[in-house]
């Protein structure tokens, strides 16, 4: 840069910017399939991964499916509105976990059941005081967010 005239410096920067925008664009194009953090239940139902493959599944915990069994084992179903995949998990659940809430689980898909080794809760970007929710519930107008 030191020995260059101003006009040439601007030309170099414009070329560099074009390259950087192109690299950003490549992230953008590759993102949906190449850099997935988790798979949706529909994707898992369509192309079930082999039982020895460890992957993540993400979606909402289906209402009325959460069963806390004996000991620490719990079962529930995860859904994205399309397919429903049953999940079995042994361990401690995060605070935000619950029916109708988002979750991401790591594990294997064996005989139609997702055997999770780790469960994470997923939070959406809604923030509301608990008093407001209690009041809304008391009036019967509260709707569960579909995050």
């Amino acid at each position: 840069m030191k020995g260059l005239k101003k006009q040439r410096r601007i030309q170099v920067i414009v070329v560099a910017f074009a390259a950087l925008v192109a690299s950003f664009g490549m992230f953008y194009i590759a993102a949906p399939d190449a850099l997935q953090f988790f798979r949706s239940p529909s994707e898992v139902a369509e192309t079930p991964p082999p039982p020895d493959e460890v992957f993540r599944i993400g979606g909402l915990v289906a209402d009325g499916t959460l069963v806390r069994g004996q000991g620490e084992t719990i079962t529930f179903s995860v859904t994205d509105g399309g397919a429903i995949i049953p999940v079995s998990y042994t361990g401690v659940l995060p605070d935000l976990f619950g029916e109708g809430e988002g979750m991401v689980g790591t594990g294997r898909y064996i005989d139609g059941v997702f055997q999770a080794s780790e469960i994470l809760a997923r939070h959406d970007e809604t923030y509301m005081p608990s008093e407001v929710i209690d009041a809304l519930k008391a009036q019967g107008v509260y709707q569960e967010p579909n995050g």
Binding site: A31, L35, F38, L120, R122, D124
Partner: peptide
């Protein structure tokens, strides 16, 4: 564009009043 991630959406967006 990575909607299948763990982190929630932006807290600071123009429609933030809704969130």
């Amino acid at each position: 564009f990575w909607n299948q991630g763990l982190h929630q959406g932006a807290s600071l967006s123009m429609d933030a009043e809704e969130n």
